[in-house]
Design a binder for these strands. Structure first.
Lengths: 342, 342
DNA sequence: TTTTATCATAAAAACGGTCTCATCACCTGT
DNA sequence: ACAGGTGATGAGACCGTTTTTATGATAAAA
């Protein structure tokens, strides 16, 4: 392992000069810089990031903190992984270090984000699957570490917080409009946890579209907790309870839940989309392989991760600018919605 | 940020004592140890892992190096992600640090694994998607860093290398036997890249089962490169070329390729499993949602990651023992294979 | 009583960098 | 000729730990 000292000796300059030369400090003569560069190259030297991270004032390390998916099935995580890929890509391009922290909601003592960051000299964080009212997130904020949240609209007053998401209101509105335009008036919604930010946004979009057409959703909002099994159970129960007045379309707030709903509907003896139409949300690839393929909203998770990492870097560098980034979503018009108007 | 110095001052002992007390060194009196523990607790102190990593002789940092999936579709990565989850879980349990390195085959200059490890004081590596003859892997070995490879049978003479995989020969053999037992004799195989270790293993298993029944696979081995699109193209071409003598079953070496094959078969105007039976490999969840569901071999990727991380830790600690771990696979008997014997 | 282990502790040297400051040579303007 | 500025350089403090080595106190052995 060649160290900076060896490079210094070989180049006949001081250690400080080597550091400055390689880090593009202005107060280094071109001659010295070139000499240092060449000897570093020759000795195959590359700085130790651990040492740099310890000594430097401005560490370039960010963390990605994600809540609750170690246990869950791989299918549920493909979006988390795409996020990670995006974050990774951005950090790699800008020579940042990336640390990951996966937390489980049930392991209380393990959830201290601030401690995780403090221990690792982390100066910026991308969070996903975490809510604004998470107590550990609050303590993290108190440490003045810039945070960017995925899928959350952040309060504008705190310049250290950013957010990245699609326009969930618009996407849900578009989806509801599409369904309504195909003649559906008896709508039901399979939503996630009420506390999640996206959940409220999407509900707002649906409401807006429904009210415009005078459609009432009272009692038609099912909670599926963003989980396949819960979705299955809830939809099953809902169908049995509303046998006499079944909805003609079920709008789901995640593809995972749509899969559970699809199963519940089929086992109830009904067909999608002949008897009940169905829509998803997220754009998992699996929606292209189900029978029928599921109409859904595709979120660009990898891009979201990338933008989040870039945004947190900008905040770390003290730059001004927009703290809320909206990335484009894409409607995937598959075949799970029946057109009642023809 | 409370440092070890502040704890030392508050406890009225030296910095060295704090370090030793908290790291369970034997030469610390119980009284001091307890006092240090309590003040550390009170001051909410937790050691800085960056500093520790720099100073300590035996760093507890491992890396997971994975080749070629940043670009690819999320579906292809669910196994990689499960691996990562397993590795993460093991590192977290044992208080190891984990660094990730995703490489792309085309970015030559970015592929220096040894450099990556050197820069980060990494002392053990889990590699996936990497072949024994990878030149960068070879240079990594020269640095005497313990390596554990996923999906590779490693040479036994080097005690610093380990491997984790299922019994690919047996799994492929089982699958072929199953297909043959259902009356199929006109088999074709959709294999991956010939250089991959698993590819050879699986082929061996198929061959063994086929030869036992006197089935000839000559000219029936299609290369799908482990990619959906390539699989689609290759199968399409194969079908057109063998119109007069179509196989009755196609054994695929990955679920991803099976998806491509399924599409190709259907677009060719044939049905699975009525006209051609199909099997996959890997056990991706999507195989339960396709139409028909795909019979496949399920690999426990998360467990493989976990075992790999544990194994590399054992090697790092200088422990003896088996360097090749075989984890159990599971056959998923879905509905993509037709029984010709009934 | 003196010598020798043993134990508990502290001081200080690493680890491999960054970065502040002091130094010095050289130029410029008066 | 001299003060003042500028540009290039190196010495050394520092980051927060671990780990080696030195030191002093106490107990056991001679």
């Amino acid at each position: 392992m060649t160290t900076i000292k060896e490079v210094a000796k070989a180049a006949g300059v001081s250690v400080a000069m080597v550091s400055k030369a390689l880090n593009n400090y202005p107060d280094v003569s071109e001659k010295t810089r070139e000499k240092v560069r060449q000897t570093a190259e020759k000795l195959n030297y590359s700085p130790n990031v651990v040492a740099r991270n310890l000594s430097s004032k401005n560490q370039k390390t960010i963390a990605m903190i994600t809540s609750g998916f170690l246990r869950s099935e791989s299918l549920d995580n493909s979006n988390s992984f795409d996020l990670l890929k995006g974050v990774y890509q951005a950090t790699e391009e800008d020579h940042y270090e990336l640390a990951m922290y996966f937390t489980e909601t049930e392991k209380q003592q393990e959830k201290d984000y601030a401690k995780f960051c403090r221990e690792r000299n982390i100066r910026g964080v991308v969070l996903s699957g975490i809510r604004l009212d998470d107590p550990y997130f609050k303590t993290l904020l108190e440490t003045n570490i810039p945070c960017v949240l995925i899928d959350v609209k952040v309060p504008t007053e705190n310049k250290l917080i950013g957010g990245v998401s699609i326009d969930n209101v618009q996407a849900a509105y578009d989806m509801a409009q599409y369904v309504i335009a195909r003649g559906h008036t008896r709508l039901a919604v399979l939503s996630g946890e009420g506390e999640a930010d996206v959940n409220g946004q999407r509900l707002k979009g649906i409401m807006r579209a429904a009210e415009a057409k005078g459609i009432d959703l009272g009692g038609k909002i099912i909670n599926g907790e963003f989980k396949e099994q819960t979705a299955y159970d809830s939809v099953r129960a809902f169908l049995e309870q509303h046998q006499t007045n079944l909805p003609s379309a079920l709008i789901c707030f995640s593809d995972i839940m749509a899969l559970g709903a699809l199963k519940a509907i089929e086992e109830f003896g009904l067909q999608v989309p002949e008897d009940i139409s169905l829509t998803g949300f997220d754009g998992l690839k699996i929606t292209d392989y189900t029978h029928p393929t599921i109409t859904t909203v595709k979120q660009p998770f990898q891009q979201m991760g990338y933008e989040a990492a870039r945004l947190v870097q900008r905040i770390m560098e003290g730059k001004e600018g927009e703290r809320q980034i909206t990335v484009p979503h894409e409607m995937i018009w598959n075949s799970s919605v029946r057109d009642l108007t023809v």
